[in-house]
């Protein structure tokens, strides 16, 4: 069993609904984008292009963030998700250095927007802030980095582990169009209006995700680094996966 995601770049419209759904589902602060759609430009007028690129955590097969963690707070589950145990995280931020995809966030930072949401919805002493909307307390799971995190730890996308871990055993795909599986599917996949996201078992050759990767030649981001992401992109004719990490290539 190895959960993985496929994102079809030909279908993605860059609407950011996934980022919003993720923020609502996981109670993220403004700027703390576990899931983001990155916008960038290429070329110059009159041949300039606006491009975008959806970027969740890659939940790598060979995660460098996990290997550098001095306490074992970052770990890999048997079903292939990379999670953080907030009770073990010492806030050294080495994982943020070691992640090639920039998907990790430290809790204690200057606010990105004013007013500071953390001072408006003050901490209850346990959590770093008290969002007015919040997932049920029974779903919160600090050992898996699910919920509103405490202060001074690192957080990141969990593949909505509170959802996928409850999925029926042996299921090949979590199809948001199937009413029986919808509640177990990651929020970004459920909300994606053009249906650009697919979620399923990469170990199962019969799964939709495995078939899509094979048929449409799925590629992984910065594959040369050897982290082996479990998020695949279908580039098609819409363009390619960014070959470098930054906009500034000069």
């Amino acid at each position: 069993m190895k959960w993985g995601m496929v994102i079809d770049l030909e279908k993605c419209t860059g609407c950011q609904a996934c980022s919003v759904a993720c923020g609502m589902e996981n109670n993220r602060l403004p700027g703390e984008h576990w899931q983001d759609v990155l916008f960038y430009t290429e070329g110059e007028y009159p041949s300039a292009q606006l491009k975008w690129f959806p970027r969740p955590c890659m939940h790598c097969e060979n995660p460098s963030c996990m290997h550098v963690c001095p306490t074992g707070a970052t770990y890999k589950t048997e079903d292939g998700a990379v999670l953080i145990n907030w009770d073990k995280c010492i806030g050294c931020k080495y994982c943020m250095i070691a992640c090639p995809y920039g998907v990790r966030f430290y809790t204690d930072e200057k606010p990105l927007v004013e007013p500071n949401v953390k001072t408006v919805f003050k901490s209850d002493g346990e959590h770093s802030w008290s969002p007015p909307w919040r997932m049920p307390a029974t779903r919160e799971d600090w050992k898996r980095g699910v919920g509103v995190q405490p202060n001074d730890v690192v957080s990141k996308c969990t593949f909505c582990y509170h959802r996928i871990s409850k999925a029926p055993k042996g299921v090949a795909d979590l199809d948001p169009n199937d009413p029986n599986l919808r509640d177990y599917t990651p929020a970004c996949v459920v909300t994606c209006a053009p249906g650009a996201r697919y979620f399923g078992d990469l170990d199962n050759p019969e799964s939709e995700v495995s078939k899509l990767i094979a048929k449409k030649r799925g590629v992984r981001l910065l594959d040369h680094l050897g982290n082996k992401p479990q998020v695949y992109y279908l580039a098609g004719e819409a363009g390619a996966v960014p070959s470098s990490r930054a906009n500034n290539k000069s």
Binding site: P70, T71, G72, K88, I90, G91, C92, D108, V153
Partner: peptide, 17 residues
């Protein structure tokens, strides 16, 4: 600088990473 310096004292030796 560390987020949890006191946690480090037990989490690093027990973690054995």
């Amino acid at each position: 600088e560390l987020g949890h310096p006191f946690r480090m004292l037990w989490a690093v030796p027990l973690g054995m990473q």
